[in-house]
Design a protein around this nucleic acid. Structure first.
Lengths: 254, 254
DNA sequence: CTCAGGCGTTGCATCTTCTGCAACGACCAT
DNA sequence: ATGGTCGTTGCAGAAGATGCAACGCCTGAG
């Protein structure tokens, strides 16, 4: 809607691929060097872009700070965190909290496994949307037309032999998940890693977040992990209760 | 340098404080509502702001993804990480890696303590620059005029009784740190937490990053922590060697 | 049930502001 | 030395952003 801003913002993902010099930025934006320079300068003043010693530009520090603050403003996250920690203390595995936003599912909190073998993931990173257990829960709750539209525009990368192969299979899986109120990912993303997930619901019953417990085969079998389902659901429900204001938060004065 | 972009970017820190509606944004920018609307729309298209269900705006998901990618592009981080993990395995405490950028010091990596009592910190968060051990190392290496200028424009919050009180004391401390090649923070930020830090240097000898080990008093005394100094320095030197290309990376084909 | 007030949204005419050009200076390598 | 590349600046023209006023929607009060 605003050309100048649009161009300036297009620089960010471009630099996310790696550092670039003025000429490269100008070329990829399709504008004159002087224009690119002015845009970069403005971004620089706001700390979003950093000029490294070789004069090339890369993403700047304020970006971290902003992402950080954005994260801390999510109230679900704040409410859920102690529950995640408690769950981790009880089962020892990696616990994740994820939300859906703008056609993406992303982790907003994580408590690391206490076992030495850990799975790789990072807060803020978009989730493998077609296979992750938390993604299934979040997408299963979307209004039908939106769910279908999204499912059809997604890619279905075959991470493993058990990855969701195409939209049709995905929609079927989402229907099941919607029905049963919980989800799993059994080696669909990484061959040896399994997850069980449960939804966090707001006062109106809509799914606002999803949490999961993940563990590699070498630590517990899929069956053992599934036996944790009641515990995971109880935790998710506790978060739901607190988030929707039903459960008074303990420790708060009455 | 570019008014429109400048205004648009000013919205981000504003929203970092918390969600805001169109009117509030327009007011704080000092522009007409319609202008604010167009800017917000552009930000929205790029995923930097999100419109929540109550129509208010808040920071969006792509911000996380960008910060994430920016982080993964830092080569020091990549090189250092395995060393940090190894150090953590050896001593069990929280290990941090930090860099200086644009008058700020920020953590770019962290390995959590294996003790139950952990210190609070987050990757991406700016560090308490006047007291943190890593900050001292990074600032001590700045060219003298820059160091002095920065020291004088900083605030010196008294987190504890042992916090650095003013610029003069800070510069003196920096001189010491520069001299000895390592730094500490003994309860200057949080009463009960101590840190030991060592610098990572590039091929030209300049400090490119700093790493630290932190632990609360309740786990180890300051003296015990200080006894880890040789280990910390050895780790930092190993990173330096690899970063500056002196040490061949093991596991790489010759 | 009505009506006022607040909020987000749109089309438009005006004018601010951004753009591309060309020229300059710095730096590197030949 | 010198040709080339790259970042930087001033300027005139043109494109695009701005503020205004009006509309529709919702909410809450009378």
């Amino acid at each position: 809607m605003s050309q100048t801003v649009d161009r300036a913002l297009s620089i960010l993902p471009l630099l996310a691929e790696g550092p670039a010099d003025l000429g490269q930025v100008a070329d990829r934006l399709g504008v004159h060097k002087s224009t690119a320079l002015r845009l970069l300068r403005t971004l620089h003043e706001h700390g979003l872009v950093y000029r490294q010693s070789d004069q090339r530009y890369r993403l700047g520090a304020r970006l971290f700070a902003l992402a950080q603050e954005a994260m801390e403003n999510l109230d679900i996250r704040e409410i859920a965190h102690p529950h995640l920690v408690r769950l981790n203390e009880q089962c020892g595995h990696t616990v994740h909290l994820a939300v859906y936003e703008e056609q993406e599912v992303l982790y907003i909190d994580k408590v690391e496994s206490r076992y030495p073998v850990r799975m790789y993931s990072r807060i803020g990173k978009p989730v493998a949307i077609t296979v992750a257990a938390v993604a299934k829960l979040l997408l299963a709750d979307l209004p039908e037309p939106e769910r279908r539209a999204l499912a059809e525009q997604l890619d279905y990368p075959l991470y493993t032999a058990r990855s969701t192969p195409h939209a049709e299979a995905f929609l079927k899986e989402l229907a099941t998940v919607r029905e049963q109120g919980w989800a799993t990912d059994l080696g669909g993303h990484e061959e040896s890693i399994n997850c069980v997930a449960a939804p966090v619901r707001g006062a109106d019953g809509r799914v606002v977040a999803a949490m999961s417990v993940s563990a590699p085969n070498v630590v517990v079998t899929a069956e053992e992990l599934l036996s944790l389902l009641p515990l995971v659901r109880r935790t998710a429900d506790a978060i739901s209760g607190e988030y929707s204001g039903r459960t008074p938060v303990k420790g708060t004065l009455a």
